[in-house]
Amino acid sequence: MAKRARFVVAAAVVTLLLVLPLLLPGPVPLHIMIMTFNFALLGVGWNIMGGYAGMFSFGQAAFFGIGAYASSWLLTAHGVNPWLGLLVGGVLAAVTAAAIGWPCSKLRGHYFAIASIAFAEIVRIHFNNWKLVGAAEGLTIPMAEPGLLNFQFHGSKAPYYYIALAFLAVGLMVSRWVATSRAGFYFRAIKESHELAMVLGISFVRYRMLATMLAAFLSAAAGTFYAQYILYLDPESVIILPISVQVVLVSMLGGAGTIFGPVVGAAILVPISEITRVELGHRGTGVDMMVYGALIWLISVYQPRGVWGFLSSLGRRKAPAPTAAPAPEARP
């Protein structure tokens, strides 16, 4: 697709997203959009470690939960502003990712995936028994004066919509930076051949940890947003395996290793999940999973590069050119 055409399409999409709250009827479609943006952000985070660096984590819910709990506990226990809590939660999640990433740095493939599930389960059980943060009862965020400063809006969901959209935009910028930076280049080298990357002198421990920390920070930001949006959280709503699985599915369906893949994946999967939940209630439990299963089967058989990969290939005749390495630069 020509550069100009791409610009026109991008401008149209951005304009549509900005005016959408004015066009959508009622709060439910807006809620679906908000949840889509939030899962897209989680997917964008996962994509940095799973899509670019090849670390298939099924434990992103742990970082989502850490972010949600950090800002919520700081707010309820110490009155810390949730925006500051968001930063603290992000840093805490990144530090936790580094702490767990170091011993897991030599694990690959299935072993890494299993370790990530175990890690998330440990975090869930810990929070379920941690009285300081409300244990199994969770935390209820007190109502505050609505406004951007307090990160609370009572009259309409539209402000949450715009904040979620802004968060996603920041996530996409981080993802783009990773995709085009030398770090991203080395992420892909490690993903393609771990041993070869080592032989070339690439410190896989350093780059795997960097990918994990970036993913953790973005997941934690999504967690803080979720907590401020729902105003209640407990371990069973934020640190559970289905969330981690959905994050992986969002990225894989949309196109792992692409910048916009997780957004496309979230735009397909989250509405399915939310609509079946709203329309079918508890009777519909599992219907979304059946649909996910069918979609994943279709995409893995017919379009392994994901929906975004398929859409991109429609826009050009030839196979995509390899991502060029950025200009060589000095390293510390």
Binding site: F185, Y186, A189, E192, L200, I202, P322, A324, A325
Partner: peptide, 16 residues
């Protein structure tokens, strides 16, 4: 690195 260009492969060798 099969999917990367010749140039990118050379750059990869210059990591150190």
């Amino acid at each position: 690195f099969g999917r990367l260009s010749v140039w990118d492969n050379l750059q990869m060798g210059a990591y150190t």
